[in-house]
Design a protein around this nucleic acid. Structure first.
Length: 257
DNA sequence: ATGGTTGTACGACAA
């Protein structure tokens, strides 16, 4: 099975790219973030016509997550337990024999800001939730835009990013707490030596210079085996791209189990 | 590298 995550930064603008991606890559499941799309305007018809089921949690202008799957999507949970959050950043669901948790972790703006405190509280609630979820589900995938670059090798310029937002010790320690629960960073496991990025700033021609960072992740429980991964840089190179590339991970076996 | 771009929605905020 092939599982992808993609922060599309407006599903309305990026729907043609998404439909091209589905046709070209034929993933079994895609987790989307930053759909910026209220539920009543979600492009259900177009995505279902491509042969996929949909589940979504959107809001006007900001945030918004969705799941797109060839296999029906069941038992959706739209709110991260343990925190009251009107922002649509979380969508957990059961797909075949998989439990999938799609995340759009708060950006945090700047270390020490009010939004940074929200990010830390959100991550702490996530860690508590996933500790329970791993007890309930042996085949668990946690994926999305984490807004955390786990290590120095995950930025194009460690000195520039050191201690800043997405790279601070408190954010990185939360990421490693997630791994310590029993989750695997599939991309780092598959490509231990590679500089792989998933996000490049729109500004300063950052993509052409490969000034990127790795903040989108696919984590899995130890019952699952990741076989291969790919960052879809060609989608970041399109006209009017998202600032994130899609990340696809190939797992052994099928969604049905 | 300390500026700059994009999306939403039409000014200002979020990223």
């Amino acid at each position: 099975m092939r599982i992808a995550t993609w922060n599309v930064n407006s599903l309305n603008v990026r729907l043609p790219h998404l439909l091209d991606f589905l046709a070209a890559e034929a993933p079994d499941m895609v987790a989307l973030q930053e759909t910026k799309c209220p539920d009543e305007r979600f492009p259900r018809v177009e995505i279902e016509a491509a042969g996929y089921h949909v589940a979504f949690a959107g809001q006007k202008a900001y945030n918004g997550v969705a799941l797109i799957s060839r296999t029906p999507i069941n038992a959706c949970l739209f709110d991260l337990p343990g925190i009251v959050d009107p922002q649509r950043r979380f969508l957990a669901a059961t797909i075949g024999e998989l439990r999938v948790v799609n995340l759009y972790v708060p950006n945090g703006e700047a270390v020490g800001s009010e939004k940074f405190g929200y990010k830390m509280a959100w991550l702490d609630a996530l860690i508590a939730f996933l500790r329970d979820e791993l007890v309930r589900h042996r085949r668990l995938i946690v994926l999305g835009d984490f807004n955390i670059a786990p290590g120095e090798e995950d930025t194009h310029d460690p000195k520039r990013w050191e201690g800043g937002i997405m790279c601070s010790p408190s954010e990185r320690s939360r990421f490693f707490e997630l791994l310590d629960l029993g989750l695997i960073d599939t991309v780092r496991e598959l490509r231990p030596e590679s500089a792989l990025y998933t996000w490049w700033d729109y500004r300063l021609n950052a993509f052409a210079r490969n000034w990127g960072i790795r903040i989108d992740h696919v984590l899995c429980s130890t019952d699952l085996q990741a076989e291969d991964c790919e960052v879809g840089k060609k989608w970041r190179a399109q006209e009017r791209p998202s600032d994130h590339a899609p990340l696809t991970v190939q797992f052994a076996g099928e969604i049905a189990g």
